[in-house]
Write a protein that binds this DNA or RNA. Structure first.
Lengths: 217, 217
DNA sequence: GTCTATAGATTGATAGAC
DNA sequence: GTCTATCAATCTATAGAC
């Protein structure tokens, strides 16, 4: 059990600041200041500010994706063994549950989940790419399994419905820990992760399984 | 029919650049350059960069919100006159249809819709506030009508489901015109606004009307 | 209203001593 | 690996001539 080294302290500080203030609105000085580290350390250890963001993403996304992949493969495997189609809800849960629970996996993890939620809407294409590159294979796997779950949906409809799923999820990831920043006249929306997952699954499963208007072209 | 003046050219240029590159990643020089206007014009006409963003939002959000409000009031009024509850789908359509169609209302309008979609996930709280302040009354109206539509949902569940709706919508607004930037191995997702609205309504109506797990606390 | 010129602060990145 | 010092570029904002 050693104290966190310079590299890890930089990752922690950057993770928090990128999530709270945004990449372009966070200076290297703010990061190194929060990390109690010399200004030059970022470029020494990571090479550039953007490479630091990449490392922030890599550090936590890699294990998170491993769990999600395992879960998805398990759902597919069990369905195959039983000679049935994977259920929409268990497919979704395999993906969503570890994601939202990840917030509780330690300090900084909630900041990371917020960061992920926000990067989906990131205007700077080169920053978005850092994330897309690392998530695309998993996204394709999810798409593939959902296609098995919902063979009556045409591909384009499924594609867009999956986008709706990602949008709802990303928004939730941005805001799960941050009420009441927004609402005053609204019901106190504090909620356990358990209940949030339940609500998301109910909503998204129903949306994905909704009857489809005749394929329009 | 006059040529667009300095002020309007600045709004047009800023709208596009804020949507494409992000607020903090867009310099006043980039804006005035694109607008073919002197650097000092921004501060003369608007006072600051942030006030320029505010004006960009105000210009188009004001009429868009007026239409959405009118539609929502009409849905509520018709339901009351007929002595029934407003239907979830027509409530959603009153809000969503004008929003997505707004993209086609002129050059720059698609950039604006992208900008709106992105600002939901904006990390900089003071920028988010510019938008929240202008959307909150409409959001409360939507919440209120949906509560009439779905009286069997507890308030907290409805609140979160409405967040899921906003997330899916915002994500769609970000990406509606931008495929295929993302996908290569995926079905060409080009789609008419008509079909997109149809798909969103099918998905979100089913999600909102999904049976609710017993109220958990 | 539009321009030039520039103040004044901050940025990401690097060179070189230790 | 860590530090100081600094470069060169960029930024928002403003003063003042026209």
């Amino acid at each position: 059990m050693t104290l966190p080294g310079t590299k890890q302290r930089l990752l922690d500080a950057a993770e928090r600041l990128f999530a709270d203030e945004g990449f372009h609105n966070t200076s290297l000085r703010a990061i190194t200041g929060r990390a109690n580290v010399n200004l030059a350390a970022v470029n020494y250890h990571f090479g550039s500010k953007e490479a630091l963001l990449d490392a922030v993403i890599e550090r936590r996304l890699s294990p998170l994706n491993a769990v999600r992949r395992e879960n998805l493969e398990a759902v597919r495997g069990e369905a195959r063994d039983a000679g049935r189609r994977p259920k929409t809800e268990e497919t979704l849960r395999a993906f969503i549950d570890p994601t939202l629970r990840f917030r509780e996996s330690g300090p900084g993890a909630e900041a990371f989940i917020t960061l992920l939620g926000r990067i989906l809407a990131e205007p700077d294409a080169s920053l978005r790419e850092l994330f897309i590159r690392r998530i695309k294979p998993l996204f394709l796997l999810l798409f593939q399994i959902l296609r098995e779950s919902l063979p009556e949906l045409d591909e384009r409809t499924l594609f867009w419905r999956l986008q709706f799923v990602l949008g709802a999820m990303g928004h939730t990831m941005c805001w799960a820990g941050r009420f009441g920043e927004l609402p005053e006249e609204l019901p106190a929306p504090s909620v356990t992760t358990e209940a949030l997952v339940r609500m998301l699954l109910d909503f998204l499963t129903a949306g994905l399984e909704a009857p489809c208007a005749t394929t329009n072209e």
